[in-house]
Design a protein around this nucleic acid. Structure first.
Lengths: 151, 151
DNA sequence: CGCTTTAGCTTAGTATAACAAATTTTCATC
DNA sequence: GATGAAAATTTGTTATACTAAGCTAAAGCG
């Protein structure tokens, strides 16, 4: 059963807040990446590789919601910088698996740490109760968005 | 006085949630913009112009956290597509004010509406109480981030 | 006034990102 | 083995994004 419709006014407010927050996060992300030899899309890709292990071009493209050809170029540049390497699958020679190299691993770990420090600082302004609520909220938001996006 | 330090584990979890959610929003945004003749950065710029009224290149650059020259190019393309126009300030001939044109206004309104419909759908899964909590949470997050970013 | 500095924006130059369409290579299947 | 499909890449084009250099108008100052 669906709940009552949220007022339009409320939606506008929430949309605005989300936009401002995402602007803040973007701004902070820029500041951090400025000290590292990777770009924002590269960061996203590397983080997925760290989290999921080796991924094919297709899998990575889906994770980061980009066209195959965009991902190919992205990987080209990261390979040139020795952040990752391509490994041809022995069973299926069509498939290329992207593997995180040490240099990439060090960088991505450091950047993630900086981001976590930032988050830590933000959350220092929260009580433990608020933090619990935030966690639950993000969980709900995520699973609900997943539902809606998959429709 | 600061609250107790959030556990590292919790931070990791929250970071991950935020990342997933922003991925979802990005994915949905792409889907919507696909039907309109504007790009994602252009959308952001137009939305600020709608919200704030005419802005100078400098003001707009700050709003969207981009270099002046990037904004100049962005405005060039939007001007070519008749979404906005440049108006020289009469008092101070150095200043250029970016003004939203009708075509741009129609597009930005429609895109915002689509985004709000999406948010509406997401929030339909929430009870009024949850929604109130969400609102408060976003408020806290925003003001706290602003504090931290300005340090 | 005449000079320098500053502010606001644009240009130039380069690298990256993003996509659609065409192509290549390999696999699966008939 | 021919044919079609799948996975990546290449091609071609446009948009984003930055730094550094340049331009023009305003402001400050002797």
């Amino acid at each position: 059963m669906e709940n009552e419709i949220t007022s339009a006014e409320s939606i506008v407010k929430i949309e605005k807040r989300l936009r401002y927050i995402s602007g803040m996060i973007k701004q902070n992300g820029r500041k951090i990446l400025h000290n590292y030899p990777i770009t924002s899309p590269q960061f996203v890709a590397l983080q997925w590789l760290l989290e999921e292990g080796d991924l094919t071009i297709g899998e990575l493209s889906n994770k980061i919601s980009l066209a195959f050809s965009t991902t190919t170029d992205l990987v080209d540049r990261m390979e040139k910088n020795e952040l990752v390497e391509r490994i041809r699958d022995d069973k299926d020679r069509r498939v290329v698996r992207i593997h995180l190299l040490d240099k990439g691993k060090v960088i991505i770990h450091e950047v993630i740490e900086k981001r976590q420090e930032y988050l830590q600082e933000v959350l220092d302004g929260f009580s433990p109760e608020e933090e619990t609520i935030l966690n639950e909220m993000l969980d709900s938001l995520y699973s609900r968005m997943k539902q809606v996006n998959e429709k």
